[in-house]
Design a binder for these strands. Structure first.
Lengths: 344, 344
DNA sequence: TTTTAGCACTCTCGATGAGCGAGTGCTAAA
DNA sequence: TTTAGCACTCGCTCATCGAGAGTGCTAAAA
């Protein structure tokens, strides 16, 4: 598998480093001068030819420099990349911001999206933390109008779902509270698979409510999460590969197609452990819409309690080291937040 | 004010109609042939020269056709445009979709954004319905973990806010429920201005909670709304004026700058009656970031109960008639939904 | 007085082609 | 095995040029 010599690895790494920064094909002379190598450009040329043979480099046309292939990037990310970490100063700053927003889930999400976009200089996406299996924690029924009720469903893990119900006949708040209390006492902690078992013990009205709860929980279960927060779209537009709008459109379609995004986030990321960072380069032959993009994704949260997904999306020529360190740091931070043990 | 002859109005309208469709400067010959006018191109040229003098048309360069100026568009929208309406068939379809989503506010918003984007072929934005003054309807305190409580605040108008609270000492659910019940009975229906008056009657713990509620309500009051839903960004990228990413970036910056957007939506739209549609062309000299864009905005909802804002954003060369009819229709629909489901 | 035909003029756009230069692959020497 | 040298390739930039669309002006026609 690892048939590259040390020198080839060095050259591949330098080519990618340069290309990531400048988006220009890199030639042998340039490389030698730029990085002060003490081998000649002819040697570099030979090595490059060999790397091209292996499939890690390619040239846009005969007399241009070399450009990394997708395989080249994959090798780079797997083997060559220097794993950096955000500077402590930066970490402290981000942590502080999150600390100030610690009470409001909505604010976390927005902050996470903003931080990811800013430090990775790419587009970011974040889904709200979400229990893997919906389990009922608490039900509240609040009369709003004669024939209408606001149902607030609190799930284990902090997910809250609201819905308006229409009534066949007006019911007083006391009656509603009694119904809620009854369902609460019977169903607390039950998951979507078990909740219908208590149906037999309930009165007709209570049964109706239970069915609605069940439907809502199932919906909550089958979707990865509700809203997907994002930020930094303009970062992507700034990249030269998206200079003409057509390629930019293809990239953005991914972000607008909620279904696709959910599919993507669940399929890819659910296979990764919390804490691990997943890198998806050029769609990895599975996601056609992502052929011109790369993503760096991570799951955060606490398995069994609630997890979410966050990550960044940029061109294949993405600053992987920076993106990965940012994604990892923010994912860890969010995990701590979800656990409620955010340390200053 | 209205110093244009009928023929000039006709020509201006035709130029704009053609330009909106094809994004190409329109010349005198083209106009005569395209629309089968029974005047000669020379006459059209004279009229065009006159319209250029008045400031409604301009030419990109000496020997190109004419292009509408911002003033031209404004005149068109004010005086010339044929006010159309969506086809009944389309209306029924949209109404039906909303009807199916009638229970879930989150789904309305997404649907509204999607419908607006689809029919106006531009980018859309929608804010959630939001009461003008926050008033407490119901408070719920739910113990989630030993030292942590989920506070659910239901405001009049259907706004729901959640927040996690950290406790100094663990409290049982019964105790929390009692606190919530006490605050509910004292504060139900009170607005942000009055709610602190009951403070004297409360125990220390209850006072703390009340202060948090107050802060949350005030925050809710000062912001126009939380999340801004949007859709159809790729529609904007498809327009030729945004073919190079630089102008697209400028347009999208508006959508990413939440502060700017809130400012924009509140300042512009709050001056408009519910039911009225506001057209903002080229930033109207106030919004520099919008210089290359136009927006069609409307408020929806019921004043005094809850209102929100929705609209579309596109190039100045926007299909105003279609956008306006779509925005108006969706705004009306959403108003009915808010009234239907949220009225006291 | 208004409209129109005619015409010279202007200016963009697209195609063509030359020259430049960065970069390559190959060969032969170190 | 590495390197210097060299011929060659090919995209990029720039200038040129003709075509075509559109204009403004003038003078005749309505």
């Amino acid at each position: 598998m690892d048939e590259l010599t040390e020198r080839q690895k060095l050259i591949l790494a330098l080519v990618i480093r340069y290309y990531i920064e400048y988006a220009l094909p890199v030639g042998s002379n340039l490389l030698v001068e730029q990085f002060g190598l003490d081998i000649s450009s002819a040697t570099v040329r030979n090595e490059m030819a060999s790397l091209a043979e292996t499939g890690y480099l390619t040239q846009p046309h005969t007399s241009a420099g070399r450009v990394p292939t997708e395989e080249g990037y994959r090798y780079f990310v797997r083997q060559l990349m220097v794993h950096t970490d955000l500077p402590d100063q930066t970490k402290r700053m981000i942590t502080h911001q999150f600390y100030q927003a610690r009470h409001d889930v909505d604010q976390w999400m927005r902050l996470a999206a903003s931080v990811l976009a800013h430090y990775s200089k790419a587009a970011s996406l974040v889904t709200a933390p979400h229990p893997e299996e919906a389990r009922l924690k608490h039900l509240e029924l609040i009369s709003t109008r004669e024939y209408q009720v606001l149902m607030v469903l609190v799930l284990v893990g902090g997910d809250v779902r609201q819905q308006f119900l229409a009534l066949a006949e007006p019911l007083p708040q006391e009656r509603l509270s009694a119904v809620a209390e009854r369902i609460n006492s019977l169903c607390r902690g039950l998951g979507v698979a078990d909740i219908l078992r208590v149906e037999a013990q309930l009165a007709p009205l209570e049964k109706d409510i239970l069915r609605i709860i069940y439907a809502e929980m199932e919906r909550s279960d089958s979707m990865l999460a509700g809203e997907i927060y994002h930020d930094g779209l303009t970062n992507v537009l700034a990249e030269p590969e998206f200079a003409e709008s057509e390629s930019a459109r293809r990239a953005f379609r991914v972000l607008e197609e909620r279904a696709l995004l959910h599919d993507l986030l669940s399929r890819t990321v659910m296979t990764t452990d919390v804490g691990g960072v997943q890198v998806l380069i050029g769609g990895d032959d599975t996601w056609d819409d992502l052929r011109e993009c790369s993503m760096v994704l991570a799951r955060y949260g606490s398995p069994g309690l609630a997890t979410g997904t966050l990550g960044v999306l940029g061109p294949i020529r993405m600053a992987y080291a920076r993106s990965i360190s940012t994604v990892r740091f923010v994912a860890d931070l969010m995990s701590n937040l979800v656990l409620g043990t955010l340390a200053e």
